[in-house]
Simulated assay, not measured.
Amino acid sequence: MSSVAGKTVVITGSSRGVGADTAKILAGEGANVVVNYRQKAPRANKVVKDITEAGGAAIAVQADMTDVESLRGLLQAGVDEFGGVDILILNASGGMESGMGEDYALRLNRDAQNDALTEGLKVLPEGGRVVFVTSHQAHFINDVETMPEYEAVAKSKRAGEDTLTARVPEMSERGVSFVVVSADMIEGTVTATLLNRARPGALEERRESAGKLYSVNEFAQEIAKMVSADVETGHVELVGGAEDFLAQAGK
Rank of each mutant, 00 (worst) to 15 (best):
K122P: 02
E187W: 05
E232N: 00
G240K: 02
P169N: 08
P169I: 07
R158C: 02
S135A: 14
D184T: 12
F132D: 09
S177P: 05
F132T: 06
F219M: 14
S177I: 01
F140Q: 01
P148C: 12
A198Q: 13
V176M: 07
P125N: 11
D230F: 00
Y214A: 15
A202W: 07
A183E: 08
A154P: 13
H136A: 14
R207W: 06
P125M: 14
E187M: 13
R174M: 15
K122G: 13
V144Q: 03
E218T: 05
E187I: 14
A138L: 08
G201L: 09
S172N: 11
E222N: 02
R206Y: 11
K225D: 05
D230H: 00
A192P: 04
E126A: 15
I223Q: 01
A210H: 11
A183R: 04
V190H: 10
I223V: 14
L213S: 05
E187F: 07
M185L: 14
H136P: 09
V181W: 02
V190F: 10
L238D: 03
G211R: 13
K122H: 11
R206I: 10
V168W: 01
I141M: 03
P200W: 00
V133C: 12
L195G: 06
L124F: 06
Y214Q: 11
Y150W: 15
A192G: 11
G175W: 01
